[in-house]
Design a protein around this nucleic acid. Structure first.
Lengths: 220, 220
DNA sequence: CGGAATCTTGAGCGGCTTCAAAACCTGTGG
DNA sequence: CCACAGGTTTTGAAGCCGCTCAAGATTCCG
């Protein structure tokens, strides 16, 4: 569960305003591995993740999925719905675990954005943040090695979505997802992770990585 | 020179509203090869290109420039200035030719955005468009060959910034810029372009490419 | 005309990917 | 409780695309 006052989308809004906005939302529960929105579907709704975990990715023409980001409680997706004449969603969102999601439809969002200009501004801020993270990823892709990108991807995921344990930071993720985040093949990902395991930097098991030495990860 | 009514940033605004917004801008001229904004500088201004041509790129940590887009009249940059507490510009903008630019400072933009909500919405639309184009580029980078990416980059540049001649479409661009747009080394770019020239698809000279058969480009 | 910027060409090679196949986990249902 | 089927991970071998590096050719401009 998230703290409404720390949701980026609500930055700069008063408690009362946030209450009203939240009241205008509909709440829905999704089981794990459910696809909430699909690429190019008309952007009719805005979503705010309340609990759980959602993967956001784009599709290549060959149908391959590229994981862009693992969304956590407090994150929004479907920002396209802020536009008066939205095109289609730019990506696909699929739950990783059972999740609770707040939903506003297009009409409601339009009305709220007009009433609370700050909301529209925050939507822009969200888009710009995505843009910046895209830029970083692109830079990494053309100027870092597969190993460096994987280290980055794992570190970021650890600091955002990791569970703190006495032995280190635990991240629930499959090789395949890490590979996609880092733009690396699953074979390369497996080899590099295995190498880190031999060096005692991480600990691996199916669908799980335990980061023992976060600092060594980025140093390697 | 652009037609105000066809500027994306002004979509959905009345002639009169556009007039007022334009009147609030300051106009400046920049000589060719002048750097208007730099990455990470505080985002204090919004820019609208009136005439000329501006390259927008990002910087790697090693200082290499990655060309993201060649901006044409009617394009905006520095959208970050729409935020009440802007961070820094996300990229660097440098004139390619002598250019006239309209400029709004942060205070003015904030005020205009509050008066004309549609303006803020259009800023979001711009950001989302950039995002979509980034996504396409990323997909190309991980699932197309250098040759395909170069064909794409050249085609797009041709249709946006090309001069229509009887023999074909002329694009004023250096190998280096094309290479950067396509995320390819300048050597690979040179080799592929030369190959297309041998096949009669394009015609090359220093700082210029003439596309003879646009369709063959994407087919090859 | 000189010099700087741009473009070409060749050789070599290395980091990743692809492909195939086997080993390994893990939750499910009999 | 065990077995099995599905998804996941590992490992090896082979190959290639595009990069790097070096050097020269060409074009343009002052």
């Amino acid at each position: 569960m998230f703290e409404p006052s720390s949701v980026q989308l609500f930055a700069g809004l008063s408690r009362e305003e946030i209450r009203i906005i939240l009241a205008a939302a509909e709440e829905r529960n999704f089981k794990k591995f459910y696809t909430i929105i699909r690429t190019r579907e008309p952007a009719t709704h805005l979503f705010l993740l309340k609990t759980g975990c959602v993967d956001f990715y784009i599709l290549t023409e060959q149908g391959r999925e590229i994981l862009l980001r693992r969304l956590l409680p407090g994150s929004v997706f479907g920002v396209d719905a802020f536009l008066s004449d939205p095109a289609g969603y730019m990506g696909t969102a699929k739950t990783v675990t059972d999740s609770e999601v707040l939903i506003w439809n297009h009409r409601v969002i339009q009305h709220l954005a007009r009433t609370y200009p700050r909301l529209a501004q925050n939507a822009l801020r969200t888009a710009l943040r995505y843009l910046a993270s895209y830029a970083r990823r692109h830079i990494g892709l053309v100027s870092n090695t597969a190993r460096e990108r994987l280290a980055w991807a794992l570190s970021r995921l650890g600091s955002r979505a990791g569970h703190l344990l006495p032995e280190g930071v635990e991240v629930r993720v499959r090789n395949e997802d890490l590979a996609s985040l880092a733009d690396v093949s699953i074979f390369t990902a497996s080899r590099i992770l295995k190498d880190w395991e031999r060096k005692g930097i991480v600990d691996k098991s199916r669908g799980r990585v335990l980061i023992r030495c976060p600092e060594k990860l980025l140093a390697a």
